[in-house]
Design a protein around this nucleic acid. Structure first.
Lengths: 140, 140
DNA sequence: TTTATGTAGTTGTATAATACATTTATATGT
DNA sequence: ACATATAAATGTATTATACAACTACATAAA
């Protein structure tokens, strides 16, 4: 078993290095932070910075700046939480929705090209295992 | 097929976000850059900054600073290339070897814990598919 | 052989993402 | 009512990165 773990460890380190390079070089409409934040808001409904920060293991201050940037670009609107005067909800705008879909299409196309010679089984399995791995993380 | 690609795309974005958070918070002896650089030198022999920068898709200047840091910590030594007066080789020191092994052990232990409830087959398959994915990258 | 061009590496500078500390406004518990 | 806790914003520092300018050496062209 140790050999498999070592492989995963090494390949993950390399993967992060490579993918970070790619996504740093501004690939698509939205950067990774924006893409994930908008995706989270889309998938799980409106949310405040605290919840978003927890989801992505980032400091609240970081997410606060990121959501401010998204608001300035018109991708989200910020509405006060009627039940808590300190809190806000961010919601996707139509433009945010459009940018999200566009970015997802671009990213998906890119990945699709990379995996064009893979079998369906391999693609499906990689997706499953990555999803499982990410879910494993949730409970640490 | 598009659904599988979408899944991979989304899970990769999330994975990078999470793993970046973890490895930023200085996990283990070496940070990710140092770990990968030392690993590359160990696996493929001594190398100059240009080769290392290409391997990791980083700017030469970035790698130059990183190797300088490694040299100052005593993990590598820099020797002039006898065949090219402009170039240098970096080689692992014993201390670098030790730090590399220690970090690998720490990282492997962490991953092992995360995957403790996975089956052997799942672990082996994830390793294979990640390796294949990384190799796919190499030719882009 | 001299001169022009190319290349390995370093250093200067700017930028972006991040964390931690502080602050403000509001909530909650004693 | 007062003390403490919390959501978010803002100030500040750090870090990783890229790009540009530079230095020293190499190679090709005249």
């Amino acid at each position: 078993m140790n050999k498999e773990i070592s492989t995963i460890e090494l390949e993950l380190a390399l993967l992060i290095r490579r993918l970070t390079s790619i996504s740093t070089r501004k690939f698509g409409t939205l950067d990774r932070s924006a893409y994930l934040l908008l995706g989270q808001i889309q998938a799980h409904g409106s949310a405040g910075v605290k919840a978003l920060a927890e989801e992505f293991r980032l400091d609240i201050s970081t997410v606060s700046r990121q959501t401010t940037a998204l608001e300035q670009k018109g991708y989200v609107i910020k509405t006060p939480d009627p039940e808590d005067g300190r809190a806000y909800f961010y919601q996707l705008t139509d433009e945010g929705q459009r940018a999200l879909e566009e970015t997802q299409a671009q990213r998906t196309e890119r990945i699709g090209l990379l995996l064009k010679d893979w079998t369906d089984e391999e693609r499906a399995r990689l997706g499953e295992l990555l999803a499982k791995f990410n879910r494993t993380y949730l409970d640490d």
